[in-house]
Protein backbone atom coordinates (compact mmCIF):
# COMPACT_ATOMS: atom_id res chain seq x y z
CA UNK A 1 0.00 0.00 0.00
CA UNK A 2 1.36 3.43 -0.87
CA UNK A 3 1.51 6.14 1.78
CA UNK A 4 -1.49 8.48 1.66
CA UNK A 5 -0.63 12.13 1.13
CA UNK A 6 -2.66 13.17 4.16
CA UNK A 7 -3.67 11.10 7.12
CA UNK A 8 -5.55 12.67 10.02
CA UNK A 9 -6.17 10.45 13.04
CA UNK A 10 -8.53 11.37 15.86
CA UNK A 11 -7.61 15.06 15.76
CA UNK A 12 -8.88 17.18 18.64
CA UNK A 13 -8.17 20.89 18.89
CA UNK A 14 -9.38 23.71 21.08
CA UNK A 15 -9.19 27.44 21.18
CA UNK A 16 -9.10 28.87 24.66
CA UNK A 17 -11.51 26.58 26.53
CA UNK A 18 -13.62 25.63 23.60
CA UNK A 19 -13.11 22.34 21.79
CA UNK A 20 -13.69 22.84 18.08
CA UNK A 21 -12.25 19.74 16.44
CA UNK A 22 -13.65 16.70 18.17
CA UNK A 23 -11.97 13.71 16.63
CA UNK A 24 -11.35 14.21 12.91
CA UNK A 25 -10.38 11.09 10.94
CA UNK A 26 -9.53 11.56 7.30
CA UNK A 27 -7.23 9.79 4.85
CA UNK A 28 -6.55 11.21 1.41
CA UNK A 29 -4.58 8.91 -0.89
CA UNK A 30 -2.27 10.34 -3.51
CA UNK A 31 -4.06 11.81 -6.51
CA UNK A 32 -7.49 12.04 -4.89
CA UNK A 33 -9.69 15.07 -4.45
CA UNK A 34 -11.86 15.10 -1.34
CA UNK A 35 -14.61 17.63 -0.73
CA UNK A 36 -15.72 18.72 2.74
CA UNK A 37 -19.14 20.27 3.23
CA UNK A 38 -20.68 21.38 6.50
CA UNK A 39 -22.60 24.01 8.34
CA UNK A 40 -21.23 27.40 9.16
CA UNK A 41 -19.17 27.23 12.30
CA UNK A 42 -18.77 23.45 12.22
CA UNK A 43 -14.97 23.76 12.24
CA UNK A 44 -13.88 23.40 8.61
CA UNK A 45 -11.63 26.46 8.57
CA UNK A 46 -10.33 25.49 11.98
CA UNK A 47 -9.26 22.15 10.51
CA UNK A 48 -7.48 23.91 7.66
CA UNK A 49 -5.72 26.32 10.04
CA UNK A 50 -4.67 23.52 12.37
CA UNK A 51 -3.19 21.66 9.42
CA UNK A 52 -1.35 24.78 8.23
CA UNK A 53 -0.02 25.41 11.74
CA UNK A 54 -1.78 28.54 12.98
CA UNK A 55 -0.69 29.24 16.54
CA UNK A 56 -4.03 30.01 18.19
CA UNK A 57 -5.09 26.39 18.54
CA UNK A 58 -4.14 23.83 21.12
CA UNK A 59 -4.04 20.29 19.83
CA UNK A 60 -5.15 18.01 22.62
CA UNK A 61 -5.23 14.66 20.86
CA UNK A 62 -4.47 12.92 17.61
CA UNK A 63 -1.89 13.02 14.87
CA UNK A 64 -1.47 14.14 11.29
CA UNK A 65 0.88 12.69 8.72
CA UNK A 66 1.81 14.47 5.52
CA UNK A 67 3.25 11.92 3.15
CA UNK A 68 4.21 9.88 6.21
CA UNK A 69 5.87 12.78 8.08
CA UNK A 70 4.64 14.14 11.42
CA UNK A 71 2.99 17.35 10.26
CA UNK A 72 2.14 18.71 13.70
CA UNK A 73 5.80 18.72 14.74
CA UNK A 74 6.68 21.15 11.95
CA UNK A 75 6.68 24.96 11.92
CA UNK A 76 4.17 26.52 9.52
CA UNK A 77 6.89 27.41 6.99
CA UNK A 78 8.28 23.88 7.16
CA UNK A 79 4.83 22.45 6.44
CA UNK A 80 4.68 24.60 3.32
CA UNK A 81 8.06 23.42 2.11
CA UNK A 82 7.01 19.84 2.90
CA UNK A 83 4.22 20.34 0.37
CA UNK A 84 1.17 21.64 2.24
CA UNK A 85 -0.73 24.58 0.81
CA UNK A 86 -3.79 26.34 2.20
CA UNK A 87 -5.84 28.61 -0.02
CA UNK A 88 -7.31 30.88 2.66
CA UNK A 89 -11.02 31.50 3.00
CA UNK A 90 -10.08 35.09 3.80
CA UNK A 91 -6.68 35.92 2.26
CA UNK A 92 -4.76 38.49 4.32
CA UNK A 93 -4.02 41.96 2.96
CA UNK A 94 -0.43 43.02 3.53
CA UNK A 95 0.23 46.67 2.69
CA UNK A 96 3.80 47.53 1.79
CA UNK A 97 4.68 44.06 0.48
CA UNK A 98 4.45 43.90 -3.31
CA UNK A 99 2.74 40.73 -4.54
CA UNK A 100 5.64 39.93 -6.88
CA UNK A 101 8.19 40.31 -4.09
CA UNK A 102 6.11 37.99 -1.95
CA UNK A 103 5.71 35.36 -4.67
CA UNK A 104 9.42 35.32 -5.33
CA UNK A 105 10.27 35.12 -1.63
CA UNK A 106 7.87 32.21 -1.15
CA UNK A 107 9.11 30.26 -4.17
CA UNK A 108 12.75 30.77 -3.29
CA UNK A 109 12.22 29.96 0.38
CA UNK A 110 10.66 26.63 -0.55
CA UNK A 111 13.37 25.88 -3.09
CA UNK A 112 16.01 26.66 -0.50
CA UNK A 113 14.33 24.38 2.05
CA UNK A 114 14.46 21.59 -0.52
CA UNK A 115 18.11 22.29 -1.26
CA UNK A 116 17.45 23.78 -4.71
CA UNK A 117 19.01 26.98 -6.01
CA UNK A 118 17.24 30.34 -6.31
CA UNK A 119 15.12 30.97 -9.35
CA UNK A 120 16.46 33.51 -11.82
CA UNK A 121 14.31 36.59 -12.31
CA UNK A 122 13.49 35.77 -15.96
CA UNK A 123 12.46 32.20 -15.02
CA UNK A 124 10.34 33.56 -12.21
CA UNK A 125 8.68 36.17 -14.42
CA UNK A 126 7.92 33.55 -17.04
CA UNK A 127 6.36 31.22 -14.48
CA UNK A 128 4.20 34.00 -13.03
CA UNK A 129 3.13 35.21 -16.43
CA UNK A 130 2.12 31.74 -17.57
CA UNK A 131 0.22 30.89 -14.39
CA UNK A 132 -1.40 34.33 -14.46
CA UNK A 133 -2.59 33.93 -18.05
CA UNK A 134 -4.23 30.62 -17.25
CA UNK A 135 -6.11 32.20 -14.35
CA UNK A 136 -7.00 35.41 -16.19
CA UNK A 137 -4.89 37.46 -13.81
CA UNK A 138 -3.59 40.75 -15.07
CA UNK A 139 0.09 40.97 -14.13
CA UNK A 140 -0.50 44.68 -13.36
CA UNK A 141 -2.47 43.49 -10.35
CA UNK A 142 0.58 41.63 -9.07
CA UNK A 143 2.58 44.84 -8.86
CA UNK A 144 0.21 46.03 -6.14
CA UNK A 145 0.71 45.23 -2.46
CA UNK A 146 -0.30 41.70 -1.55
CA UNK A 147 -4.09 41.34 -1.69
CA UNK A 148 -4.55 45.04 -0.91
CA UNK A 149 -7.53 46.37 -2.80
CA UNK A 150 -8.01 43.07 -4.63
CA UNK A 151 -11.68 42.29 -5.11
CA UNK A 152 -13.04 39.19 -3.39
CA UNK A 153 -12.73 37.19 -6.60
CA UNK A 154 -9.26 38.54 -7.36
CA UNK A 155 -8.07 37.44 -3.95
CA UNK A 156 -9.29 33.90 -4.56
CA UNK A 157 -7.66 33.80 -7.98
CA UNK A 158 -4.42 35.04 -6.45
CA UNK A 159 -4.57 32.15 -3.97
CA UNK A 160 -4.85 29.65 -6.81
CA UNK A 161 -2.03 31.42 -8.63
CA UNK A 162 0.19 30.89 -5.59
CA UNK A 163 -0.84 27.26 -5.50
CA UNK A 164 0.04 26.83 -9.17
CA UNK A 165 3.46 28.40 -8.63
CA UNK A 166 4.30 26.52 -5.45
CA UNK A 167 3.20 23.12 -6.79
CA UNK A 168 2.25 21.62 -3.42
CA UNK A 169 1.58 17.95 -2.73
CA UNK A 170 -1.44 18.64 -0.58
CA UNK A 171 -3.77 21.50 -1.47
CA UNK A 172 -6.44 22.68 0.93
CA UNK A 173 -8.93 25.04 -0.65
CA UNK A 174 -11.11 26.75 1.94
CA UNK A 175 -14.18 28.11 0.14
CA UNK A 176 -12.14 29.18 -2.84
CA UNK A 177 -15.41 29.40 -4.78
CA UNK A 178 -17.06 31.95 -2.51
CA UNK A 179 -16.99 35.41 -3.99
CA UNK A 180 -16.32 34.19 -7.52
CA UNK A 181 -18.59 35.17 -10.39
CA UNK A 182 -19.79 32.45 -12.78
CA UNK A 183 -16.99 32.97 -15.29
CA UNK A 184 -14.33 33.22 -12.60
CA UNK A 185 -15.59 29.98 -11.10
CA UNK A 186 -14.96 28.28 -14.44
CA UNK A 187 -11.48 29.80 -14.77
CA UNK A 188 -10.48 28.92 -11.23
CA UNK A 189 -11.87 25.39 -11.49
CA UNK A 190 -9.94 24.92 -14.70
CA UNK A 191 -6.82 26.12 -12.93
CA UNK A 192 -7.39 23.73 -10.05
CA UNK A 193 -8.16 20.81 -12.37
CA UNK A 194 -4.95 21.50 -14.27
CA UNK A 195 -3.10 20.88 -11.01
CA UNK A 196 -4.74 17.51 -10.41
CA UNK A 197 -2.14 14.84 -10.76
CA UNK A 198 -1.25 11.38 -9.53
CA UNK A 199 1.10 12.74 -6.87
CA UNK A 200 -1.05 15.60 -5.63
CA UNK A 201 -4.10 15.48 -3.38
CA UNK A 202 -6.71 18.10 -2.61
CA UNK A 203 -9.12 18.90 0.16
CA UNK A 204 -11.83 21.19 -1.16
CA UNK A 205 -14.00 22.92 1.43
CA UNK A 206 -17.19 24.34 -0.05
CA UNK A 207 -20.81 25.15 0.66
CA UNK A 208 -21.94 24.73 -2.91
CA UNK A 209 -22.45 21.58 -4.88
CA UNK A 210 -22.00 23.70 -8.03
CA UNK A 211 -18.23 23.85 -7.54
CA UNK A 212 -18.14 20.08 -7.47
CA UNK A 213 -19.59 19.97 -10.99
CA UNK A 214 -16.36 21.65 -12.08
CA UNK A 215 -13.92 20.07 -9.66
CA UNK A 216 -15.31 16.57 -9.46
CA UNK A 217 -14.33 15.00 -6.15
CA UNK A 218 -13.42 11.37 -5.53
CA UNK A 219 -14.94 11.49 -2.06
CA UNK A 220 -17.35 13.87 -0.31
CA UNK A 221 -17.35 14.26 3.49
CA UNK A 222 -19.98 15.85 5.67
CA UNK A 223 -18.45 17.82 8.53
CA UNK A 224 -20.51 18.50 11.62
CA UNK A 225 -19.64 19.77 15.08
CA UNK A 226 -15.92 19.22 14.75
CA UNK A 227 -15.82 15.88 12.96
CA UNK A 228 -16.67 13.97 9.82
CA UNK A 229 -20.09 12.35 10.19
CA UNK A 230 -20.65 10.92 6.72
CA UNK A 231 -18.57 10.13 3.66
CA UNK A 232 -19.60 9.07 0.18
CA UNK A 233 -19.04 9.62 -3.51
CA UNK A 234 -19.87 12.80 -5.40
CA UNK A 235 -23.60 12.05 -5.23
CA UNK A 236 -23.49 12.76 -1.50
CA UNK A 237 -23.12 16.45 -2.39
CA UNK A 238 -26.29 16.27 -4.44
CA UNK A 239 -28.17 14.63 -1.60
CA UNK A 240 -26.95 17.34 0.77
CA UNK A 241 -28.08 20.02 -1.61
CA UNK A 242 -31.52 18.44 -1.82
CA UNK A 243 -32.08 17.59 1.82
CA UNK A 244 -29.90 19.92 3.88
CA UNK A 245 -27.63 18.93 6.75
CA UNK A 246 -30.29 17.82 9.24
CA UNK A 247 -30.55 14.32 7.76
CA UNK A 248 -26.83 13.83 8.27
CA UNK A 249 -26.05 15.44 11.58
CA UNK A 250 -29.43 15.27 13.27
CA UNK A 251 -29.27 18.90 14.36
CA UNK A 252 -32.01 21.37 13.51
CA UNK A 253 -31.23 23.70 10.61
Amino acid sequence: MTTPILEIRNLHARIEDREILKGVNLTIPAGEVHAVMGRNGSGKSTLSYVLAGKEDYEITEGEVLLDGQDLLAMEPFERASAGLFLAFQYPIEIPGVATMTFLKAAMNAQRKARGEGEMTTPDFMRAVKQAGTELNIDTEMLKRPLNVGFSGGEKKRAEVLQMALLQPKMCILDETDSGLDIDALQVVSKGVNALRSAGRSMLVITHYQRLLNHIVPDVVHVFSDGKIVESGDKDLALQLEAKGYADFDGAAA
Binding site: I92, I94, T101, F102, A105, A106, A109, Q110
Partner: peptide, 28 residues
Protein backbone atom coordinates in the same frame (compact mmCIF):
# COMPACT_ATOMS: atom_id res chain seq x y z
CA UNK B 1 0.04 37.79 13.63
CA UNK B 2 -2.32 36.98 10.80
CA UNK B 3 0.08 38.53 8.31
CA UNK B 4 2.97 36.58 9.81
CA UNK B 5 1.01 33.35 9.56
CA UNK B 6 0.01 34.05 5.98
CA UNK B 7 3.62 34.61 4.90
CA UNK B 8 4.88 31.58 6.81
CA UNK B 9 2.12 29.40 5.40
CA UNK B 10 3.78 30.00 2.03
CA UNK B 11 7.10 28.65 3.24
CA UNK B 12 8.73 31.93 4.25
CA UNK B 13 10.70 31.39 7.48
CA UNK B 14 9.78 33.46 10.52
CA UNK B 15 12.68 35.91 10.45
CA UNK B 16 12.33 36.54 6.75
CA UNK B 17 8.59 37.09 7.18
CA UNK B 18 9.30 39.62 9.94
CA UNK B 19 11.76 41.42 7.72
CA UNK B 20 9.23 41.57 4.90
CA UNK B 21 6.58 43.03 7.17
CA UNK B 22 8.96 45.58 8.66
CA UNK B 23 10.07 46.65 5.20
CA UNK B 24 6.42 46.86 4.25
CA UNK B 25 5.76 49.05 7.27
CA UNK B 26 8.50 51.44 6.15
CA UNK B 27 7.75 51.39 2.44
CA UNK B 28 5.59 54.50 2.73
Amino acid sequence: EDSMFYLMSRGIPKEEAETMLVRGFLEE
